[in-house]
């Protein structure tokens, strides 16, 4: 092994770990919303990926109307998505919640199926509607950061945006955890997720709590969609692959666990990049799938859930 080979072997390893970790922040942000709805409402939201894309398109539209620095777009975007999430839950999804389904005398299996089907329908409608409005053109949020990187050495650099999003993911997930622990509505969310029936008996307005949880979920989708738009181009039909990634992260971290999302994202990111480095790029996604299946097989409760 020559010195140059050794040098590159080190660079590969360092790059794999670093890029993988920052990719993990990106994955974490994509999946928090899904983990939240699952944790609180046992709702498997199949339209989650499409909401990310909706948020990205909304960001582009807002920036088209008011050409300011891209980060300002979060100011209207995040509350907007919260409202959409709240209204969606109260108006539509609450009608097929575990509660509602049981009230209507349907079997528990149906309680599982109805939200799946309805969110699948929403997913189709969203992507088709986006295509009708925006056509299939690839869009992106133009910014000065997407091409910049922090160079650590001549051959080792770290993407500014992705590093930023890793930090953002950590901060947001921390904030969400605090919110759930410290605030009144946060405690209500926790109580409802532990046992919705008892929470309802204790006078909590389950419909409202679910609405807030859904709103928070889409709020995170707004951050994630903004992030996708900043760092990639997107098209109306890009949602489902993000959904699959989000599922993977949630499984690795443990269904419904927020901190698990963060760590799960990082584990998935590092696995993918390292597999890509050593077994060729075709192995990148395959290694990700196998990791998730492995976790499902060996630790269905997730790697980071006690």
């Amino acid at each position: 092994m020559t010195t140059e080979d050794f040098y590159w072997a080190l660079i590969d390893l360092a790059n794999g770990l670093m890029t993988g970790a920052t990719l993990g922040g990106y994955y974490a942000l994509i999946s928090v919303g899904l983990a939240l709805t699952f944790g609180v409402m046992k709702l498997v939201n199949l339209s989650h990926g499409d909401w990310l894309i909706v948020a990205a398109y909304l960001a582009v539209v807002i920036l088209g109307l008011y050409p300011v620095s891209p980060f300002w777009v979060l100011l209207p975007l995040v509350p907007m998505m919260f409202v959409i999430g709240y209204v969606l839950q109260r108006g539509l999804l609450n009608r097929v919640s575990t509660f509602a389904v049981e009230r209507r005398g349907l079997s528990p299996i149906m309680a599982m199926m109805l939200p799946l089907l309805i969110t699948f329908g929403i997913s189709t409608v969203l992507s088709q509607a986006l295509q009708l409005v925006f056509s299939t053109n690839a869009q992106t949020i133009r910014n000065d950061y997407s091409f910049s990187a922090i160079a650590l050495s001549q051959d080792l650099s770290i993407s500014t945006l992705r590093l930023g999003f890793l930090v953002l993911a950590a901060v947001l997930i921390g904030a969400l955890a605090l919110f759930i622990q410290r605030t009144h509505i946060g405690r209500a969310i926790r109580a409802t997720s532990d046992d919705a029936e008892i929470a309802a008996l204790m006078g909590m307005r389950t419909a409202h709590v679910y609405g807030v949880a859904s709103g928070l979920s889409l709020m995170f989708a707004a951050f994630a969609g903004f992030m996708i738009g900043m760092s990639r181009s997107f098209q109306p039909f890009d949602g489902p692959p993000y959904l699959l990634t989000a599922f993977g992260v949630v499984v690795i971290g443990g269904l419904g666990s927020l901190g698990g999302c963060f760590l799960g994202g990082i584990v998935l990111g590092i696995t993918q990049v390292l597999a890509g480095t050593y077994f060729g790029p075709a192995a990148q996604q395959l290694a990700g799938y196998l990791l998730i299946l492995l976790v499902l097989a060996a630790r269905p409760q997730g790697l980071f859930k006690r």
Binding site: D12, N15, G16, T19, G20, L23, P241, G269, Q272, V273, G276, T277, G280, P281, A282, Q284, Q285
Partner: peptide, 12 residues
């Protein structure tokens, strides 16, 4: 080598 569309990372 061949890679799948939507490859998350190109750095390697």
């Amino acid at each position: 080598g061949r890679f799948q569309q939507g490859l998350p990372d190109f750095s390697s």
